[in-house]
Nucleic acid binder design. Structure first.
Length: 560
RNA sequence: UGGGGAAUAGUUCAACGGUAGAACAUCGGACUCUGACUCCGAGAAUCUAGGUUCGAAUCCUAGUUCCCCAGCCA
């Protein structure tokens, strides 16, 4: 009983899974088959992750399978680079299509046969109208369209024209094959939609074999039918394509009859999830590339250090429904911290260094102290960190005239240096301009390791690195790409955040960080989760901030 | 009366005629060698108006608001 309930919960609760459950129980389908159908004309983003998790997730949970199928029906905009990136990203997210890798282009011959089938049945015709003429005769949202003058050509003429289209006798745009449905339909998709257009373009897979290509509508449902897809899940904007999807299945001798279901796509605050805009961000040089850590692409998130587990958890938490919605970016951040808090080892790094000299610590001396790699996981072990007379602390951790709630270092104040000693600030050294350049402090030798034998407490524990062995590194902090929670996709440049990337060129990190070969995530104590940038080099280390730690002091201080 | 959808805490989802619940966010508090984590607590919602019913977020009627559709894109 408990097991059953747990299993049901495991399988998730949303209207799509409800439908699958009912279809399985009623025997309408014997095994569930889904598909993730990207068009290889851009990189996958976190919105796609929602679809991937849904399609692969449903298949997994109900013992079915999910195909990866490229919707590669428009060679004018598709390329191999994107195909490779898509496979890399789906795998990284944690899903495996096994042998079920397909392409709409695998079915070009069958689709063409079906085009002839429709033509022979008098349900499709070749039109000579130009794109402009077609637009004009399609009608408007409230007015019916008018029928093409070529709508009633004979079957023979249509067949002849269609074959000559395929044979390459006509230039781009000279003809189209259209379904003969209803120019007066309230659903514009039913006003004689285009099935084939002439496109003299080389296809990444079929090369020069074709110069006519099927439209999305003519390819998608039939591809589903060929693959035996039971539940074809797509986003809301395809809802009014469903009658057309069903029309093809009803009028063609297809091997199976899939059903289409629609859910609301993901929207995120401070983010634009539109391939068009993402492509423009890359091409316009607004970001460094598809894998720029500020991008909502899976490649960008990966480079920023976001674990795939966090993305899957995020998708699970936001659910699946039909209402348009915008998810708070804070939800994603939470999921990232949730995972990294458990799995990332701790290290110390000073992002904006301020020099500290321990005046009563002997010159030339140093000692090694032990630091835990993970405070909640003893199994993660410990490492040695060096303490000496000269150290660096975070500039933000010192204030000469601290407000009431500032617990860190200030003149006369005593704080703990994590895993080391209590220190007290004795003197502030400034340059000619009045800027603080150095702190002269004293330490209490009795507090070695971080505890005072007399039991006295300090209000703050600060991270630090030793000046003698700290390594220089560049640290990149990322902020939202857009300044507004609801950036305008039509004019995204106006909402771009000029402070989305902050480069700290002179950070100091503990040597263990420079030595680590692992590419895994680490927590810079008290600051956030970071990872080494994949383009980082031994002599020039670069770390990316994945996400900051929650910072309740920022609220008190009124800073961000 | 063009067609198709959707409306539940600030946000994202549950509740499938029978006590409106969770997570994130927010605000308190406890704990703490990370102002982190963890723990405890609080405030906060059924689009509107009628109707059916012992009982309505759920069913019916009429409205309101929002989203999508006029590519030879997907």
């Amino acid at each position: 009983m408990a097991t059953t309930q747990a299993t049901v919960r495991e399988a998730g609760q949303d209207f799509i899974r409800d439908i699958v459950r009912v279809d399985l129980a009623s025997g309408r389908v014997k095994a569930v088959a889904t598909r993730f159908p990207p068009e290889p004309n851009g990189y996958l983003h976190i919105g796609h992750a929602k679809s991937i998790c849904l399609n692969f997730g449903v298949a997994e949970e109900f013992g079915g399978h999910c195909n990866l199928r490229y919707d590669d029906t428009n060679p004018a905009r598709e390329s191999q680079e994107y195909i490779d990136a898509i496979e890399r990203d789906v795998r990284w997210l944690g899903f495996d299509w096994g042998k079920n890798l397909f392409h709409a282009s695998d079915y070009f011959e069958q689709l063409y046969e079906w085009a002839e089938h429709l033509t022979r049945a008098g349900k499709a015709y070749v039109d000579d109208q130009t794109q402009e003429e077609m637009r004009l005769t399609r009608g408007t949202l409230t007015e019916a369209g008018t029928e093409s003058p070529h709508r009633n050509r004979s079957v023979e003429e249509n067949l002849n024209l269609l074959r000559r289209m395929r044979a390459g006798e006509f230039p781009n745009g000279a003809h189209t094959l259209r379904a003969k449905i209803d120019m007066g339909s309230g659903n514009i998709n039913l006003r004689d939609p285009v099935l084939y257009r002439i496109l003299h373009a080389e296809h990444p897979r079929t090369g020069k074999a074709w110069c006519i290509y099927p439209s999305y509508d003519f390819a998608h449902g039939q591809s589903d039918a060929i693959e035996g897809i039971t539940h074809s899940v797509c986003t809301l904007e395809f809802e009014d394509h469903r009658p057309l999807y069903d029309w093809f299945l009803a009028n063609l001798p297809v091997p199976s009859h899939p059903h289409q279901y629609e859910f609301a796509r993901l929207n995120l605050t401070y983010t634009i999830l539109s391939k068009r805009v993402l492509t423009e961000l890359v091409r316009g040089g607004h970001v460094g590339g598809w894998d720029d850590p500020r991008m909502p692409t899976l490649a960008g998130l990966r480079r920023r250090g976001v674990p795939p587990e966090s993305i899957r958890d995020f998708v699970r938490r936001i659910g699946v429904a039909k209402a348009n919605s915008v998810v708070d970016m804070g939800m994603l951040d939470f999921c990232i911290r949730e995972h990294l808090n458990k799995h990332a080892q701790r290290r110390m790094a000073v992002l904006r260094p301020l020099k500290v000299v321990i005046e009563n610590y002997p010159e030339e001396a140093h000692e090694d102290l032990e630091a835990a790699n993970h405070p909640e996981d003893a199994g993660a072990g410990t490492r040695r960190i060096r303490f000496g007379r000269e150290l660096f602390i975070e500039r933000d951790d010192f204030m000469e005239n601290p407000p009431k709630k500032f617990f860190r270092l200030s003149p006369g104040a005593e704080v703990r240096l994590r895993y080391a000693y209590f220190i007290t600030c004795r003197e502030v050294v400034k340059d000619a301009a009045g800027a603080v350049t150095e702190l002269r402090c004293s330490y209490d030798p009795a507090t070695k390791g971080g505890n005072a034998p007399d039991g006295r407490k300090v209000k703050a524990t600060m991270h630090w690195v030793s000046a003698s062995d700290a390594v220089r590194a560049e640290v990149r902090l990322y902020n939202p790409l857009f300044t507004r929670p609801d950036p305008n996709a039509a004019d995204f440049a106006a909402d771009l955040n000029p402070q989305s990337l902050e480069i700290l060129a002179d950070a100091r990190i503990e040597p263990a960080l420079a030595a680590d070969n692992a590419d895994g995530a680490v927590q810079f104590e008290r600051q956030g989760y970071f990872c080494r940038d994949p383009y980082s080099k031994p002599g020039r280390l670069v770390f990316n901030r994945t996400v900051g730690l929650r910072d309740s002091y920022a609220k008190i201080a009124g800073t961000s």
